[in-house]
Amino acid sequence: MTIASTTQLICFVALSATLVLGALGVVLLPNIVYSAFLLGGVFLSVAGLYLLLNASFVAAAQVLVYVGAVNVLILFAIMLVNKKENLAAIPGLGVRRLLSGAVCGGLFVLLIRVAFTTPWALPGPEPVGEEATIRIGEHLFSDYLLPFELASVLLLMSMIGAIVLARRDVLSSDVITGEAVDQGLIEKERTPLLLEKSPR
């Protein structure tokens, strides 16, 4: 057992411990702000696992996209909607938790059994290691060109969709009072689109 493989093993154990504990914290902690920060930790340890698997480009993409964009977006959403509200108790919550826990445990046992009983074709071909980024570039511009271009269209669509869904309808002047629209009016304008009673 060489020093390199020992280091690899220690890194793997540390990263997986962070990953599992962080994931449990994301799901179980009552304060959602802590959950969001732990989610960033989970994303970072997944990036570390990718580095262990010789995939430096995907690790960098993971850090940039997940930690830099998705996690920040989630934090912003929490800051925008984090109103303290007392959730009304619903009957049968404990039973539901136990049942779903049993279902997830069963799924876990199934996945573990599949992973350990399937005869994987190991060892596979020699990994490319450092050349992985070059190979990914070749794939993206030859045999995966169509999905690559479609991904750009998808990102544009989701960007426009997010703007359309999240914006407030801003009029140039208020219809009733004729007052010019400023930030105060926008904040006063809280007429919901869907309510049981008619808003106006």
Partner: peptide
Amino acid sequence: ITVAAAEAAVGLA
């Protein structure tokens, strides 16, 4: 990862 980023943006909106 790309699809997940798009999903997060639309979901939060």
